[in-house]
Design a protein around this nucleic acid. Structure first.
Lengths: 344, 344
DNA sequence: TTGAAAGCGCTACCAG
DNA sequence: CTGGTAGCGCTTTCAA
């Protein structure tokens, strides 16, 4: 155990000191630590033991500098407090940790300026790459500059037109289909709407388009008035639902952009005395808590963890650390979880 | 703009190249970038302009190595998906970002081994310090070793006996008092219990003790049978509540360890046909979603964001970057938010 | 006010 | 299999 307590890494035990203590060369110690087959097993063990005795701690930053690559990866998200995002972040972290990478957390708070600043920080830090849920209306140039400077990106959930970056996203068509199948074929609803989500964001656009299409095919009326976007906060969504409700009856069914939003909608509905028999609600996400709601939320469960793991794998592939073709793990497809809010 | 796309930071534009392009010395460029008063403003501008033109990106890792300190700070938490944790993490991030630090995210998943591994990683990375929500039963030695090696820690929520580390936590007594005051003085309940939380964790212990004490003072019976711990998952909590309910009537009031757990409890209660008139429930956290629940959850709101910001400030104080005495910002005290679940 | 040179802790190359 | 040595890109004396 070291007797000093170096306040800042300076003054810590170095490889050189380990080498000196052992009477071997610096190179031998370095090689021993990286399990190079070229050092004798006995030597390696002696080095390891002496290092432990001296309280030596490997200095990865120095190694990174010398090797010209980094084991830091950025995770850029709008808000980590969003349950879906948090779950996805966990997946990214898991898979990157398996390959020795560490996550730099960056919350953009939905601001383009903040996002640009954080991406710049990642570049300065010489992160090996980044998994990014881009802020809406991100200028392609904001990421392209950093990308050109050697920072590989993987985009999640929202694409950026013209950025030409790898893009991982859920199967939004399948999500819409799952909801439509259940609502149209099982419940024979005659009108349907799509509630919430950020207007211009891709998931909303795709799901909305697909649901509209499916409705047309099934002879179901699409309630345009209820196809509004909302800011992604419970209060916003609740206020929007109230406003809509004040303007007339809801459609017979409402697909909701996220579980969180669905809770707000359900609350507004309940206060207006409208139950699952009158307006069937289907959420999207599959957050465990939704089972506890009253009425328990029927929802299309999305594999956020798997999504994150996959995004991480795609980045590792970009980094040349992993071959995506051989990494067969994929996120589970969306699945309908039937509970009470659809009137089942 | 650089024409090459260096894959790994190697090959990127360096200060030396900027200096050469300008015909000045490397030191001048370095000083110019750090706004040293010693370089002429005109020189500084020329350097900046040329750097931008060449696509130079400051290499913070190299600077860190040379200066012997780092702008990386670890955030070690059990699970980032916990809403309270995510909110706190955001606070930590905010305040550290204000001082130029970047967060390394580390999910321990509640495992002591994983936590030790992550702390080791932080030490290798030469992080400047770490904000840690320690896993239960963390051996003091696990953190002490890294601490001795120069990694300052701030503990949040759970203390580690004998670690002698700065410890930031909510005012759990005040939380219990707020719930007790309302339940005893307003609702005149005659029996009360405390539902959920991890058995041995400090927040639970303190709140439980205080509630018990307050109950005794007020002549309220404490329902020992309902003072059980749970794993912090909705399903677990729900199952526990069902089991307890099957064993007899609940007390007239239940204080619940977290909002998330309260939702599960409320669900079990509702299924048993027990409303807020019969068993009054008060949560702890103040998550926005709780307002959307039916019945809307009465809860003691805790300032998780502020808690995180404060923990960050304490760490900055440890690092000597900030003087805590002059940093007067403190988390808001807990506050009761009265809604429906208490029978109001 | 600017420049030259040493060195942070490590890796990689080349000799032995 | 082991040992010297030259840097990675930056900061920091110390001279000029």
């Amino acid at each position: 155990m070291a007797t000093r307590t170096p306040r800042d890494g300076r003054g810590a035990v170095t490889m050189q000191q380990v080498a000196d203590a052992l009477g071997v060369s610096l190179s031998t110690v370095s090689l021993a630590f990286r399990d190079a087959p070229v050092v004798a097993p006995a030597t390696r063990e002696r080095v390891r033991a002496e290092a432990a005795r001296l309280g030596y701690v490997y200095h990865r930053a120095a190694a990174n500098l010398r090797r010209g690559r980094s084991n830091l990866v950025g995770l850029v998200v709008p808000v980590i407090t969003n349950p879906f995002v948090a779950q996805m972040a966990t997946g990214v972290q898991e898979v990157l940790a398996e390959h020795g990478f560490v996550l730099l957390l960056a919350n953009t708070g939905g601001s383009v300026e903040q996002q640009l600043k954080l991406v710049r920080t990642l570049a300065e830090q010489r992160a090996a790459g980044a998994v990014v849920i881009p802020v809406l209306d991100t200028p392609a140039a904001d990421l392209r500059a950093a990308h050109a400077a050697g920072l590989p990106f993987v985009l999640v959930n929202r694409d950026i037109e013209g950025a030409g970056l790898p893009f991982v996203h859920q199967d939004d068509e399948a999500i819409a289909d799952l909801a439509a199948d259940h609502l149209f074929a099982e419940h024979h609803v005659r009108t349907v709407g799509y509630f919430g989500g950020v207007e211009a964001a891709r998931p909303r656009r795709v799901r909305l388009a697909r649901l509209r299409e499916r409705a047309a095919d099934a002879g179901v009326t699409f309630a345009q008035r209820w196809a509004v976007g909302t800011a992604p906060t419970p209060e916003e969504a609740y206020a929007t639902a109230r406003r809509l409700l004040a303007g007339g009856s809801p459609p017979e069914a409402l697909v909701c952009h996220s579980d969180e939003l669905a809770w707000s909608l359900l609350r507004a509905l309940a206060e207006a005395g409208i139950g699952p028999g009158e307006c069937r609600v289907v959420g999207i996400d599959g957050i465990p808590t939704s089972a506890m709601f009253s009425p328990a939320l029927t929802t299309v469960a999305v594999d956020a963890l798997g999504e994150g793991r996959y995004a991480g794998a795609v980045l590792l592939d970009e980094l040349g650390v992993l071959d995506l073709a051989e990494h067969t793990e994929r996120p589970a497809p969306p699945a309908l979880v039937v509970r009470e809010s659809c009137g089942c």
